[in-house]
Design a protein around this nucleic acid. Structure first.
Lengths: 246, 246
DNA sequence: GCCTTCCCTTGACCCAGATCAAGTCGATGA
DNA sequence: TCATCGACTTGATCTGGGTCAAGGGAAGGC
């Protein structure tokens, strides 16, 4: 695909209008944004932009998941962020991408041409205000993740990731099933390993171990049930409920 | 100390006026900031604020270094940020601290009462604009650090940290000595370990190894000379010159 | 139906870095 | 002058997670 698509979608019925970078905009500002916006969709596995490439647009994830990764010359890679629906991609004021951005699932993005977007940001405060909030949240998430990467064991890392994905899913799918939590993993074992600073073999082994110990129940390779969420948090080494995600 | 101090210092001769959160402000805005500002100094080792404490002020580091650390219940700690001169502490809109902030060296901060600062931020765009820029830089630095924590070896981690400290020092102390770089480590071995996700013994061993291999020259325990900066970057696993810091 | 491919699991072995344990060095103070 | 203390170094040993290797199982193509 990688085509500009017409989704017959406007801002009115946009699923992320309350959380995206445009959430604070008034009708007039939305109109200005509308003039420079277009939708693009990507298939799972497709690269949205390569690190170092010129960045012609910035934008919001409407649906699906994208990952930000950094790569060393010798091929070691570390995922440094996950873009979930409503998250913003791109840095105003910078004209080349700092990370590889890859669609982890099928992905739809609401894009803005970069130059006009920057201009608009300087002229109207609401976009910049919201972007500051979102960036501060991302910074907190990144710092939370530094603790995971630097100090947690492999088992704790896996439990932390499951807790984050589970919590996010619970907040989106209003379905709060008493205390049994059910979700599908949106990442391959390899992507999880890249996120957690582990190898895919270790990820697989630790998931098997958590399953064996009854912390999680697996159906197939991706469908997860967490019978006792507090138990999962204990395994993650988190006090009470720390650990938000972008 | 921990006292409010009068440093007979105004904004005119402030050493960080070109890089701090107030860098974009005009005379009028500076005056408004001046009305809610005060200086505080802390001795090396003193805690500026504990995670979870109510945050009465936000502010900029004028001189010295502070560290942000996260701690798990069992005592494992991870440093998640270093605040260098001109860096901003505190999150507008949040009323309790998310991390322990500790003065790593003697420290002077230019503080603003939080509530009036937030109000001012909503009314004037220049502070918010600058804060957004700074937050985006910090986010990049945090992500850079995630690669270090997740994928680098102990030796590469040490080399990365030395490169960062050295580069910062070079940019402050205009003294760019051809290509021999000289600086003092502002961190103990333990603080380095906390930053790098290592133990202090491993830090000590790797520093000894880099010294033995001629990558660095040590005088005493803190004074470092880097005869060949490119060599250090190679040891850090960085391509060319990546790895900024906050 | 069968073959390929991708994703995942499991086992055997190894090593980088953690842990445990003694020191060394230099500053401070009695 | 000597004791103390904090910062650091170095050695011996252990172990969690990496590496290498061999498969399994489900989906898609021919």
């Amino acid at each position: 695909m990688n085509e500009i698509v017409n989704l017959s979608m406007g801002c009115d019925n946009c699923p992320i209008k309350h959380r995206a970078v445009c959430a604070r905009c008034d009708a007039d500002e939305l109109e200005q944004l509308d003039a420079i916006k277009f939708y693009r969709s990507f298939e799972a596995g497709q690269t949205v932009i390569w690190s170092g490439d010129r960045m012609e647009f910035v934008g919001s994830v409407v649906s699906g998941i994208a990952s930000l990764t950094q790569t060393m010359e010798d091929g070691r890679t570390q995922m440094v962020g996950l873009l979930l629906p409503s998250d913003f991609m791109g840095r105003p004021g910078r004209d080349s991408a700092s990370y590889d951005v890859v669609a982890t699932t099928d992905l739809v993005m609401c894009c803005f041409r970069r130059k006009p977007f920057e201009k608009l940001m300087n002229e109207t405060p609401h976009v910049a205000q919201r972007l500051l909030e979102m960036t501060l949240d991302e910074l907190d998430a990144a710092r939370e993740w530094m603790l995971v990467l630097g100090r947690k064991t492999a088992r704790e890392k896996i439990a932390s990731l499951l807790a984050i994905i589970g919590r996010r899913d619970a907040s989106l799918n209003l379905g709060r099933t008493a205390d049994a939590m059910v979700f599908d993993l949106p990442l391959t074992r390899e992507a999880m390993a890249d996120y957690l600073g582990l190898t895919l073999e270790t990820v697989s082994r630790q998931i098997s171990a958590l399953k064996r110990d009854g912390v999680i129940v697996l159906e197939g390779k991706r469908h997860v049930t967490v019978p006792n969420f507090q138990r999962l948090l204990d395994e993650a080494g988190d006090d009470s409920d720390g650990g938000m995600m972008a």
